[in-house]
Design a protein around this nucleic acid. Sequence first.
DNA 1: CGGCTGATTCGCT
DNA 2: GCGAATCAGCCGC
Length: 200
Amino acid sequence: MNELHQKLPLGFLEGDDVVKIAKALLGKILATHIEGKVCKGRIIEVEAYNGRIDKACHAYGGRQTKRNMPMYGSAGTAYVYLCYGIHHLFNIVTNAEGFADAVLVRALEPIEGQATMKERLLSKNEKLTNGPGLLAKAMGITLDMTGVMLKGDQIWLEEAPRLPDSKIMETTRIGIDYAEEDVLLPWRFYEKGNDWVSKK
DNA sequence: CGGCTGATTCGCT
DNA sequence: GCGAATCAGCCGC
């Protein structure tokens, strides 16, 4: 097996600095094997959410709901939730059990299974994975996958060289206007010049 | 091509 | 009841 396609050890996600982990995840590969179909994409856009200090985080202030419980799980847990009543958004939980940090995967560069993605999306345009709602649908990620570990046969991460800092763009997160001053945190990261970034 | 809006369900007031 | 870590379709320029 090609060394680039080894599974990413979940220890990669155990640190207590979710911002650092979010940046390090850029370039890594997200893979799913659902209903007999394999899909893969390079992670090229992410956002960091910190449960203790970040008003944009669903678990800010120690809030616990049925929806956000997976965020308190151990590093490498998937957190999938329904946004705007329609879209599934996929997060990678980081840090130790009991700490509700997570990285929202906002965009992928497709590298395998594009035909399957197109079937799932029933979309007329060329967008497959240029946004968190789209990529979850394209990859076959659904609500019942919240709480599963990213190490099984269904969904996992693969190793890949990390992006040099010179290729990483840092900016503010999207769609969190309710988060008061934390709107300004530069916790969205994407690969400069990549056409699959969700917004320009 | 930019801006506005409906979709649709969960969580909190 | 209202707003939400979004997207596609429609309208007007």
